[in-house]
Computed example of a mutant assay.
Amino acid sequence: MKRFISIMLTIQLCIVSFTANSESINYYVIAKQAMPFQITTSDNQHSGIVSDIIAAIFIDNYTINYHTYPFNRMISKLKSGGEKNWVTYGSPNWGSVQAANLSDHPIYTVSHSILSNINSNFVYQDLNDISDKVFVLLHGFDYPTLQPYIDNGEIQELRVKDYSAAFRILDKMPQDAVFVEMTSRIKYNIKIQSRDLKQFKLQDFSALIPSYPIYLAFDPNMDSALQQFINQQLAVLADKGTLTDIINQYI
């Protein structure tokens, strides 16, 4: 009886695998702002935590169609339906299309930090410490827990297009500006831009932006067999330690 059940489960997995592999996957990538989760090069090569996970899931007999856009345009594309069976990454905290249909298990837990210039005397303890600071934030991204303070004028925001611009502002306005972003993305971008973390102060900001999990985000109308296959493969990667290995390459 056990042997019969094992055989049937194997056949079922093969059927799901065959169905999945017969489909093309449309993978949506944020241009320039999502490192180390999604990294693109000038010759259109893809890497990063999420991109490597997608590649590992579809390691055999698959077709991945990459669609790379600035963040706002990508969201607009997905809200209008996107390409069939699309996948990207998302979180319940982000809402909208990046939260509508998520993988069974998270792929990473993100935390946020507040970055200031090493020459600044800024120390974050509570909201009173940031009332006179200019908050540098990435253009296009939402920060729901900060928005009420921005709306009522307690926080002055300054939007920038990328990390280089954010670091330059901290250099030019060391006493007045702070940069709020995911800790992993801050550290990665400091590293690839040949900056030294010792040039900055990195302080935990979880009191205002609590840590939360991120997941793979799916087309709400994704083929059910394909979604089952992705979730199964994701579970296998987690059990084998492959997810941890991928993350450790970048963080």
Rank of each mutant, 00 (worst) to 15 (best):
K79F: 01
H105S: 15
S224N: 07
A166E: 04
S76N: 14
D60T: 11
G153Q: 09
A31F: 10
L9W: 09
N189V: 04
P70C: 10
I49V: 11
T68C: 05
N119E: 14
I39P: 06
I246H: 06
T88Y: 02
A34S: 13
I186H: 04
N189F: 05
I192F: 02
N128D: 14
K133Y: 07
G82A: 00
D245G: 10
S24L: 00
A99L: 06
T40E: 11
Y149F: 14
F122G: 12
H46F: 15
G95E: 03
K198N: 15
N72M: 15
V178F: 08
N72R: 15
Q249A: 06
Y188I: 04
D219C: 03
Y124E: 13
L115A: 10
L127W: 12
N221Y: 05
E83I: 05
G82P: 00
V97T: 06
Q147P: 01
A31S: 15
Q175F: 02
I49T: 02
T242F: 06
I54K: 08
K84D: 00
D239P: 04
I186R: 03
H139S: 12
I209P: 01
A100P: 01
T242H: 06
I230M: 00
N121Q: 11
V50A: 08
I130A: 07
I59G: 06
D223L: 02
P144I: 05
F179W: 04
R3W: 10
Q156N: 07
S111I: 09
F4V: 14
N72V: 15
Q125Y: 12
H105W: 08
L216E: 01
E154H: 14
V87R: 03
I53S: 07
I57F: 07
I155A: 03
S131C: 08
T183V: 03
D52K: 06
T63Q: 05
L127I: 15
T19N: 02
Y250I: 12
K240T: 15
G82R: 01
T242I: 15
I251M: 00
S184A: 09
L202G: 03
G95H: 05
L216A: 01
N152G: 04
S111K: 14
R73H: 11
L243G: 08
Q228A: 09
F18D: 08
M74K: 12
G82L: 01
G153R: 11
K172N: 10
S224F: 02
I39A: 09
K201D: 13
P36Y: 05
L158G: 01
T242W: 05
L137N: 06
I118R: 10
N93L: 09
K198G: 10
F58D: 00
Q232H: 12
I251G: 12
I53G: 07
R159V: 03
F4D: 14
T40L: 07
Y212M: 02
I7Q: 13
S111H: 13
I192D: 02
P220Y: 07
S211W: 05
N248F: 01
S164R: 12
T41N: 07
G90C: 04
R168P: 00
L13P: 04
I130C: 06
I150E: 06
I251W: 01
N221F: 04
E83A: 09
S76D: 13
I192V: 14
Q45G: 00
H46N: 12
R73S: 11
T19S: 02
G90E: 08
Y215N: 01
Y163C: 08
F218R: 01
L127F: 12
E83K: 08
F58Y: 10
I251C: 05
P174R: 10
R185Q: 13
D239C: 07
